[in-house]
């Protein structure tokens, strides 16, 4: 599974992209965040305030309880501020 980070989430994690293989117990976006947050102190800092984290599964905005089963690309980012 390819994980992408954008804006300050990318800066806090210290990487734009990483490939991970979460265990089968990771079924939802929320569980994926819990698992990623344990990877390093930087990940933990990036995911510290979950209210500020938005996510997309295979480039579609997704809610925290969405399933990540079969997902190729999961992105994490702050609320969007374009336009």
């Amino acid at each position: 599974m390819n994980i992408l980070y954008f804006a300050w989430v990318r800066e806090k994690v210290g990487a734009a992209e990483e490939t991970v293989s979460p265990p089968p117990t990771v079924g939802t976006l929320g569980q994926l965040i819990d698992w990623l947050a344990q990877r390093s102190p930087r990940h933990a800092a990036a995911f510290a305030d979950r209210k500020l984290i938005r996510a997309a599964i295979d480039q579609v905005h997704s809610q925290i309880n969405a399933s990540v089963a079969g997902a190729k690309e999961v992105a994490f980012f702050p609320p969007v501020t374009g336009g």
């Binding site: 300050w8 980012f77 969007v80 501020t81 336009g83």
Partner: peptide, 12 residues
């Protein structure tokens, strides 16, 4: 514009 501001993945 209203929907783009809250849905399009851009960050300033």
């Amino acid at each position: 514009m209203d929907w783009l501001k809250t849905k399009a993945p851009f960050w300033k």
